[in-house]
C-alpha cells in the first residue's frame, strides 16, 4: 500500500487534533493542574485536602476553612508562621501555630462599619502571597486585610495594579499594639534588595525549604545523606521521587515534625 503526501499530511493532522478532541471529550486533556476548588467538601480538613492534591503538588486557598490553624496553613502553603502572625497582628500571648481562622473575633477590637477580618481574609492573603488561583466569592466581597498584611503583600507578592487598588481600598488601619517579635522592616527588605551573591544565597536558601512539594530527591540533592533521612523518617527511602509529605501521609507520620527535623538537617549544610 502506497501513501501520498496529501494523505499523510491529512492523517498527521487528523491523529493529532482528533486525538486531542477525543481526549478532551473524555476529560483527559489537562494542560494545567488547576483543580475545581468546589470539589473539596467543606468539612474536610486542610490536611485531607492537601493529601488529595499532593499528587499534583497543588494546594488551593479556596480549601482553607474556619477551623484550620495557622500552623497548618503555614505548612501547606509554605508561608512562614511569623509572616502570618505579623500579617494578622496576633497578640504575643496567642500561639500562632494553634490559632484558628474562626477565632479572629476573640482577639480584635470592633472595627468600623462593615470592616471585618475572617476566614475570607486569610484565603485572600494566602492567594495573593503564593500567587495561587483564587476568586473572591460573592459572600467574600469587601474582603479586608490589616495594614501589616497589605504591606507584606506589596513587598513580597507579584500584584497587579487592580489588586493593589483593591487592597488599598480594603485596608484596615490597625491601632492596637503590634508585638515586638514580628519580623522587622529590614528583614522584609533584605529579600527584595540587590543582585549578586547575596541574592543568589538568599534564593538558594529559599529553595532549600522542606515543604509539601519536597521530594526525597530534593533532600538528597541538597546534600542531606540518605542515612540521616532514613533515621528521621524511621525507614528506608521508598523512591527518590516520592513527596516526603505523601510518605508521611501513607505511613501515618506527623509531617510537621518530620519536616522540622529534616529542615534542621538542611540548615546545618549551610548556604
Amino acid at each position: 500500500m502506497k501513501i501520498r503526501s496529501k494523505t499523510l499530511g491529512t492523517i498527521i493532522a487528523f491523529v493529532i487534533f482528533g486525538g486531542i478532541l477525543g481526549a478532551s471529550t473524555l476529560g483527559l486533556w489537562k494542560t494545567e493542574s488547576v483543580r475545581n476548588p468546589n470539589s473539596i467538601q467543606r468539612n474536610k480538613s486542610i490536611g485531607e485536602a492537601a493529601r488529595e492534591n499532593a499528587v499534583t503538588g497543588d494546594y488551593y486557598p479556596a480549601d482553607i476553612r474556619g477551623n484550620h490553624r495557622f500552623g497548618e496553613i503555614s505548612e501547606i502553603f509554605n508561608i512562614p508562621l511569623e509572616i502570618l502572625s505579623h500579617a494578622f497582628a496576633l497578640p504575643p500571648d496567642v500561639d500562632p501555630a494553634n490559632f484558628k481562622n474562626q477565632d479572629f473575633d476573640s482577639i480584635y477590637p470592633s472595627f468600623e462599619g462593615e470592616q471585618e477580618i475572617g476566614n475570607g481574609s486569610v484565603k485572600w492573603f494566602v492567594a495573593l502571597y503564593t500567587g495561587l488561583p483564587f476568586e473572591l466569592e460573592d459572600e467574600e466581597e469587601d474582603t479586608y486585610l490589616l495594614r501589616p498584611a497589605v504591606e507584606i503583600l506589596k513587598k513580597h507578592a507579584s500584584l497587579t495594579a487592580e489588586q493593589i487598588a483593591y487592597l488599598d481600598a480594603y485596608t484596615i488601619e490597625i491601632e492596637f499594639e503590634i508585638p515586638d517579635s514580628y519580623p522587622s522592616e529590614d528583614e522584609f527588605q533584605s529579600s527584595d534588595e540587590g543582585a549578586g551573591d547575596g541574592e543568589e544565597t538568599k534564593l538558594k536558601q529559599d529553595e532549600m525549604i522542606v515543604a509539601g512539594k519536597t521530594t526525597f530527591a530534593d533532600l538528597l540533592d541538597w546534600g542531606v545523606s540518605a542515612e540521616k533521612i532514613e533515621t528521621i523518617i524511621g525507614g528506608g527511602i521508598p523512591n527518590r521521587l516520592i513527596l516526603v509529605y505523601d510518605y508521611c501521609a501513607e505511613n501515618g507520620l506527623p509531617f510537621g515534625q518530620i519536616k522540622t527535623e529534616l529542615q534542621i538537617e538542611v540548615d546545618t549544610l549551610g548556604p
Partner: peptide, 21 residues
Amino acid sequence: GTFTQKIQQSSFILMILVFIL
C-alpha cells in the same frame, strides 16, 4: 504515579498520539 515537575497530562496524550504516528 506522578508527573515530572511542570509536565501535564496533555504531554502524555501528545506523546501517545505521536507514538501512534
